[in-house]
């Protein structure tokens, strides 16, 4: 009840603000294209504090403040409930509000499919893709497997469910990759064990409680540098572009792609920005411009390299098309894995 009342109020407020903006626009047509936020922008994170999306959002907040990219402050809030559903529902419910943006993980696709919570990317306005987060197949450095092929062969040779894969969350990106890997293991399954975050997953592997993980680079890089973990392959179509040495002998670019190693699985995670539906083109354009400026900063470039991100940038129709295709991919993968919510 309270929520309805709240949103009714805010909606009428937005209407009023919209009318005011229209009036202003009519009075000064030149100003119409250069829309600026008139109050603090709320940046929703559909995940908990400390995770990858949270780090990126707070980093963005820091860069924007530091380089003065926007006249209004960014306020970051976490809405992690229901595997991020809470955050996406908030954006869905804020139709027409140009002062709210959200950063996405793969749960943009996986959560509605797996839980049946009613939202989809079509309820929002795509702004831009910031980067694609990579996934790497990691094993403990003490294990005998030097290549992905060796590892997969070992899985094939062992009894079913013998090999344990740790990952973040259930029916989300890590488990989807695991299921995709099972296509090439000759019918042998992994035992997938879900944990609450990437850090916990990495420690399970370092402590030898599981056999492998598909951590994002940033989640496992410290352990790699320290010689505790070994990367086998990267789930991207081509190798990473970062050639600076991370360990004494290897750079990100030295990790072969999974395809090269005979494991035909590709997966990347969208780190992108969306806005509520019903915003104007000028408002979207403002944020696209903001994130383009952000990408030019040296801090951002360093952050991208540290996390070995794929720096693809998209906006507009191209981005929407990409998202639509990604949704289809997730639907297919999850359908195949039996992860879809029962109606």
């Amino acid at each position: 009840m309270s929520k309805q009342a709240h949103s009714r109020w805010s909606r009428s407020l937005i209407l009023a603000a919209g009318a005011a903006a229209l009036a202003a626009g009519a009075a000064a047509p030149a100003a119409a294209e250069a829309w600026q936020p008139s109050k603090a922008v709320t940046f929703v994170i559909p995940a908990g504090t400390g995770g990858g999306a949270d780090q990126m959002a707070r980093f963005i907040q820091g860069i924007v403040t530091k380089h003065n990219l926007m006249s209004q402050p960014i306020i970051v809030i976490n809405k992690a409930g229901g595997a991020g559903a809470e955050g996406f529902l908030e954006i869905k419910g804020s139709k027409g509000d140009p002062h709210k943006i959200i950063i996405t993980l793969s749960n943009l696709f996986t959560t509605p499919l797996a839980t049946g919570t009613p939202f989809s990317w079509k309820d929002m306005t795509p702004v831009s893709m910031l980067a694609l987060d990579q996934f790497v197949l990691w094993v403990n450095a003490e294990s005998p497997y030097k290549t992905a092929k060796e590892y997969i062969d070992a899985v094939k040779a062992a009894p079913d469910r013998q090999f344990k894969m740790a990952g973040t969350g259930s029916k989300q990106e890590d488990q989807i990759i695991t299921v995709a890997l099972e296509r090439v293991t000759g019918g042998k399954k992994f035992t997938y064990i879900p944990f609450s975050g990437g850090g916990a997953v990495a420690v399970q592997l370092v402590g030898n409680h599981v056999n492998s993980t598909v951590n994002n680079p940033i989640e496992a890089v410290a352990q790699w540098k320290a010689g505790k973990l070994r990367p086998l392959c990267i789930f991207d179509g081509k190798r990473s572009i970062y050639t600076n040495k991370v360990t004494a002998t290897m750079a990100w670019s030295d990790i072969p792609t999974c395809k090269e190693s005979g494991v035909g699985v590709e997966y990347q995670m969208l780190r992108g920005i969306f806005m509520p539906a019903g915003v104007t083109k000028e408002q979207v354009a403002f944020y696209v411009g903001l994130f383009q400026k952000l990408r030019e900063t040296p801090d951002w470039k360093k952050f991208m390299e540290d996390g070995a991100f794929n720096q693809t940038f998209m906006s507009g129709d191209e981005y929407a098309k990409w998202v639509a295709a990604a949704e289809k991919t997730h639907y297919d993968l999850m359908k195949e894995a039996g992860f879809l919510a029962k109606p």
Partner: peptide
């Protein structure tokens, strides 16, 4: 590895400042 939610945020901080926590 963060031992608490606060440590997780601090960890993020280290990464953002360009430090790599770890062994």
């Amino acid at each position: 590895i963060p031992g608490s939610p606060t440590a997780a945020v601090l960890l993020g901080g280290l990464l953002i400042w360009g430090l790599k926590p770890g062994p």
